[in-house]
């Protein structure tokens, strides 16, 4: 499975990591679209954004607001925004204490296999969790990563011109009350965070660098970190 993601050659594929730190959803989404256009034109290599979002619920293409269980007043009080987005899947939550990765990847370099790509993202999360002492797995028909009956990472992807948008969200210490305000993916699912499962408190930066390392192996990347503003000034 992993070999097909490497593309046709065994050479490493250059990739760039842009760490955004804490960032609002809308601005990050606009940046994704900009990078998607640049990647589609071949101006930039595969590029991975890492971000910790301000609280937000996003609804995928086949999602429904009926899976949002609270009203406008609660959303305003908690400072949670709601956006409808182009990725697959239903409603999901992003917020502080959660690692979000948006790989802007040209799948033509990775075997043109969208299911294989999603499994690669899941495998990266499962591998990192195993290294940190947590046994996690997939569940048939339910994309994402699970620790028994609880969901620790969500996956949602959009592909246009074979270039990806959106990606994965891994709960490190996410707000449990915010999660309880939705039926994630349209189902009654309980979320779990890494902090609930291990004694050590891992920083988001540690988790991000572990994920990128796992993805280097899975996707055949050699990831170089760049400062986002400088990268965009030079390449965008």
């Amino acid at each position: 499975m992993t070999t097909s993601l490497h593309g046709s050659t065994e050479q490493e594929i250059a990739a760039v990591h842009l760490p955004l730190g804490r960032a609002e959803y809308r601005a990050t989404h606009e940046l994704q679209l900009r990078l998607h256009a640049l990647r589609s034109q071949g101006v930039i290599p595969d590029t991975i954004l890492s971000v910790e979002h301000d609280p937000v619920f996003t609804i995928g293409r086949r999602g429904s607001r009926t899976n949002l269980l609270v009203g406008k007043d609660t959303l305003e009080r908690e400072g949670i925004a709601v956006y409808e987005v182009e990725r697959g899947g239903d409603i999901t939550y992003h917020g502080p204490g959660q690692v979000v990765l948006y790989p802007i990847v040209d799948l033509r370099d990775h075997g043109k296999d969208i299911a294989g790509y999603v499994r690669g993202l899941e495998q990266a999360v499962i591998g990192v969790l195993a290294r940190l002492g947590v046994e996690a797995d997939r569940r048939p028909g339910l994309p994402g990563v699970w620790v028994k009956e609880r969901k620790i990472a969500a996956i949602g992807v959009h592909v246009r011109k074979w270039v990806t948008l959106h990606g994965l969200a891994l709960n490190v210490r996410a707000n449990r009350e915010h999660f309880a305000m939705i039926n994630p993916c349209g189902m009654k699912i309980e979320a779990v965070s890494l902090d609930d499962l291990v004694d050590r408190r891992y920083s988001l930066a540690e988790v991000i660098s572990n994920l990128l390392e796992a993805m280097e192996t899975l996707f055949g990347w050699r990831v170089v970190e760049e400062e986002p503003e400088r990268f965009l000034k030079e390449r965008g």
Partner: peptide, 16 residues
């Protein structure tokens, strides 16, 4: 031009 959008495994794909 974008023609139709399909979905599988939490992934939406645009066919031109």
């Amino acid at each position: 031009e974008d023609l139709v959008e399909v979905e599988t495994e939490k992934t939406t794909f645009v066919i031109e």
